[in-house]
């Protein structure tokens, strides 16, 4: 009996840590989301309003704008990142000496702080002295005069490109390890049977990578939904509100407008969207041994 209790006592420090950093803030923010709390008015939580803050979101045009922006941003970022990272993985998954060096170099963009990446890209995209702007202008002269962060479409393209740039190395490494784990015999058999490279890719490689694609896409959706630093440092949601994703809208509502109840409710809506997506995706796509 003593032994049984002892293991639970050992769990206490971890539980204290999780409770203080995760469970308590979660419960507290849910409680706040059920109240009308304007921090400009009072330091204490205001009156209980039930689910009013949740209902309010659905009649808020800014909320719907941020949902649309989030959808465009997430779908584009996830699809482009996955496609490019599979392509990079196919190029770098061979067991050659110089490729192992390239694989190590590949991780560098991922090792940089997202805020630093955002600021650096803001400079590089500057129409007057930006390096990237000059390079693009040199190779594709018609694009030389584009102010990348100056129109809704180009700002979104720039934002998606930067987030893809951040996550591409990590995702590529996931696919590289997946590809290197596929038995060579399968490819040799396909070669013997006369399969073309195209057929090998779509009939063998991608189906065999299915479990990794599944995990990578779930992770990528979650990473993209919570992307914050690149938006703050690169576009601040602009021009207008064309790159104002839900995450940034929540931050503005809470920490710029001090509407804490509504901001907490929006936070929960984002969490529900993320969890909902993961559950639906897993149910639809994860069948049987995909996870094994």
């Amino acid at each position: 009996m003593k032994n049984k209790l002892f293991k639970y006592i050992l769990l206490i420090p971890a539980l204290v840590l999780i409770a203080s950093t995760t469970i308590y803030p979660l419960m507290r923010s849910f409680w706040i989301s059920l109240h009308d709390w304007d921090l400009k008015e009072s330091l204490t939580i205001g009156p209980f309003v039930g689910i009013d803050n949740y209902v309010r979101a659905f009649s808020d045009s800014q909320f719907w704008n941020s949902i649309l922006v989030t959808l465009i941003f997430t779908v584009s970022t996830v699809l482009i990142t996955l496609a490019l990272s599979i392509a990079v993985a196919l190029l770098l998954s061979k067991e050659k000496r110089h490729l192992s060096f390239l694989r190590a170099v590949l991780i560098i963009p991922f090792a940089m702080s997202p805020a630093l990446v955002g600021y650096s890209w803001r400079f590089m995209l500057n129409p007057d002295y930006g390096l990237f702007d000059k390079i693009i202008g040199f190779f594709i002269p018609p694009l030389a005069d584009i102010v990348w962060l100056g129109t809704p479409q180009t700002a979104m393209i720039a934002l998606v490109s930067v987030v893809v740039w951040i996550w591409l190395p990590f995702m590529s490494l996931m696919f590289i390890s997946g590809l290197m784990g596929v038995p060579r015999e399968v490819f040799e058999a396909a070669q013997v049977d006369g399969a073309s490279s195209f057929q090998t890719l779509f009939r063998i490689t991608i189906p065999m990578l299915r479990p990794i694609i599944l995990i990578a896409s779930i992770l990528m959706v979650m990473f993209t939904l919570k992307a914050f630093d690149p938006i703050v440092t690169l576009t601040q949601g602009g021009p207008g509100d064309s790159t104002e994703v839900l995450n940034f809208f929540i931050y503005k509502t809470g920490f710029r407008f001090f509407d804490m109840g509504y901001s907490s409710a929006l936070g929960y809506i984002l969490a529900m969207i993320t969890v909902g997506f993961v559950i639906i995706y897993m149910r639809r796509l994860a069948k049987g041994d995909d996870w094994n």
Binding site: N126, P127, D128, D145, V147, G150, G238
Partner: peptide
Amino acid sequence: KDKVAPPGSVT
């Protein structure tokens, strides 16, 4: 319209 401001001033 007048284009007397640099294009980058939009950001």
